[in-house]
Nucleic acid binder design. Structure first.
Lengths: 228, 228
DNA sequence: GAGGCATTAATTGTCAACAATTGAGGACAA
DNA sequence: TTGTCCTCAATTGTTGACAATTAATGCCTC
């Protein structure tokens, strides 16, 4: 079917990276799968140059690991990786929440209200756990990250940590009905940000992510494959 | 002279990246300088393939900016970039200090003592400000980052934030005798870490970096080139 | 039969030529 | 003189062939 498909704007290597990222994050090409350059080049009807560039791009985001002279594979996320990920996430998102609070304006509360109402509707429609894994939860966190006004934080979160999170969640689909609790925590964070209370916003965000980690860790324990 | 020089192990692209990074961080190839692929390829007697790979590597670290179809340049760090950098640094290093404290053992205090004694000696030898810019200050922060045991934090700090810091400091050489004060702050942080006091360690580290930013910001104001 | 070593097929790293895009410079018209 | 358009040189993006490294296969020795 699709050789490289639709949008012909931009560099081939970036379109390739987009395709591959979607493949990986959608569950095709499972963790550990080889990503041979020749195979990919044939699959997308393109030479090996752009393929290499695309693989390098994806290795930056952390969803692909490249070992020199051996090749690229879809990253396998272990328990230690997940823990490290959530630690960094807690630090960066707490900072982001604090910065966002410091920059909050008079219209901030209304914006958050609209967004969270929408999320509440989605949760009501899908009562059991569709919230956390979809784009819903990330939306809130992305909004906060953008509000922080720090391009480095935004880049780390959107380009590296969140893709890795998606990869991590591929195997632990049902994030047991934490949706309602998460939404509640989001609302409290939003209030603190809108109030301009940096300290509380950062604290609540940190706690929120810690709770998220606790829930995920329990799941990791259930489906325990390997001790480490 | 040197074509690619000495160590012939490893990939050409990585050796190239090392050479270029050193060139940039040593002050040759000033901010904004073009990094044409053909020129670099001839300069290092190598083809354009590895040059492209090396430039991509350096753009990941943030000391080179690449605009598609236009080329690569040494990054120009503005005031906003510096502020964002120090914000992220504060968040990540505070987290690292806290994690390090949580993992501290009985030998930690002795290790820090040895390191900081050495730093004190260096400061005594070079009373005016050689401390902060050299490898000395970074050494302490690197030790803390390693102690944290979080590979993501370590990678961000060593591979991205610190190179950018070096680039930023290229134009503001003399970090007015903050050496002694910085060392004092380091000692207090080390004590907190060795005591296993995560909260205080994180707090002190955050304050330490905030102080560092204040000092740098003053210098940026003095040599104010552009309003932004 | 098991372990170690040379050989070989497969894959990645590098090269040099080709295609496409960009930005500058100049000519021309208003 | 100024603004616009066109042309062209320079640079990046892509391609396919060549070299080097790796990992597995089979053979030989113990």
């Amino acid at each position: 079917m699709s050789t490289i498909e639709d949008k012909s704007r931009g560099m081939v290597s970036e379109r390739l990276a987009d395709e591959l990222r979607e493949d990986i994050l959608k569950g095709r090409r499972p963790s550990g799968a080889r990503l041979g350059e020749v195979a990919l080049a044939e699959r997308f009807a393109v030479s090996r140059g752009p393929v290499r560039a695309a693989l390098n791009l994806l290795s930056e985001t952390g969803i692909v690991t490249i070992v020199p002279n051996s090749g690229a594979r879809v990253r396998v996320m272990g328990r230690a990786d997940a823990r490290a990920l959530y630690q960094v996430r807690a630090a960066l998102e707490a900072e982001a929440a604090g910065l966002a609070a410091a920059r909050a304006g008079s219209e901030t509360a209304a914006q958050f209200g609209k967004l969270l109402d929408q999320h509440a509707g989605e949760i009501a429609a899908h009562p059991e756990g569709a919230y956390l894994q979809g784009v819903g939860d990330r939306d809130f966190h992305m909004v906060v990250a953008r509000m922080a006004g720090n391009p480095i934080i935004l880049r780390y979160l959107s380009r590296e940590l969140y893709p890795q999170l998606s990869l991590l969640r591929l195997k632990h689909r049902n994030v047991t009905g934490r949706g309602a609790r998460a939404l509640n925590e989001h609302m409290r964070i939003a209030t603190a940000i809108a109030d301009g209370d940096s300290e509380v916003a950062g604290l609540l965000m940190r706690r929120h992510i810690r709770n998220s980690w606790t829930a995920l860790e329990a799941q990791l324990s259930e489906t325990a494959e390997d001790p480490e």
